[in-house]
C-alpha cells in the first residue's frame, strides 16, 4: 500500500518505510526522514532530512495548499477525486428498477454524457427520480417516450458500447 498525492500533473507515491523512532518515507526511491515539529492555525513546521521547513498549509475538501519558502504548491486530495467506480457499471443499458412513468428526457440520441449526468426523470410511487448516466458515453437509444409508462426492468436508455480500453 502506498499513499498517492497529486500535484498538478505529477503524482507522488509515498511509501512509509518506518515510523519509529522517526517517520521514514520513500519518494521516487529516495528515503527521507520526516518529523512533524509543530502545527497550529495553518502554520506548520516540519523537519525533512534534518532540515527545518516552516510554512502555511490550507486544507480544503478537495485540495491541500502549501506555501513554503516563497513558493506555492497545490495538491489534489485524490480520495476526493472521482475515480472509476464499479458501482456505476460498464453495461450499455439503463434499466428501470421499478415500474413508473417517464416524465422528462434530458438527453437525445447522440448526446455525449459524462458519468453521473442526468438522462431521464421518471415518476414512480408518487416520487420523481432522476436517472444518472452509469458511465461516460454516447446515448444510442431512448426507449420510452415522455409520458409513457414502463415496467420494472424495462430498458430506459441504451448507451453506445464503450470503446475497448487499454489496460
Amino acid at each position: 500500500m502506498s499513499y498517492e498525492i497529486r500535484q498538478e500533473k505529477a503524482d507522488f507515491h509515498l511509501d512509509i518505510a518506518a515510523r519509529r523512532p522517526t517517520l521514514e518515507v520513500t519518494i521516487a526511491q529516495t528515503l527521507h526522514r520526516v518529523e512533524e515539529v509543530a502545527d497550529s492555525d495553518g502554520r506548520f513546521t516540519i523537519s525533512v532530512d534534518g532540515r527545518l521547513f516552516r510554512g502555511w498549509r490550507l486544507i480544503t475538501s478537495d485540495r491541500i495548499e502549501i506555501r513554503l519558502d516563497g513558493r506555492s504548491f497545490v495538491f489534489d486530495r485524490r480520495e476526493g477525486v472521482a475515480r472509476a467506480d464499479a458501482t456505476t457499471g460498464t453495461g450499455d443499458e439503463v434499466r428501470a428498477e421499478m415500474p413508473g412513468t417517464l416524465v422528462t428526457r434530458h438527453v437525445d440520441v447522440g448526446t455525449q454524457v459524462a458519468l453521473g449526468e442526468r438522462l431521464v426523470t421518471i415518476e414512480s410511487m408518487k416520487l420523481q427520480v432522476t436517472i444518472a448516466a452509469p458511465r461516460a458515453g454516447t446515448i444510442a437509444r431512448l426507449h420510452i417516450a415522455e409520458g409513457a409508462t414502463f415496467e420494472r426492468g424495462a430498458i430506459l436508455v441504451s448507451m453506445a458500447p464503450a470503446a475497448p480500453q487499454e489496460g
Binding site: M1, S2, Y3, D15, I16, A17, A18, R19, E24
Partner: peptide, 8 residues
C-alpha cells in the same frame, strides 16, 4: 497481501 497491508 502486500498491497493490502499498511506500509512499513
Amino acid at each position: 497481501v502486500e498491497a493490502l497491508l499498511d506500509p512499513g
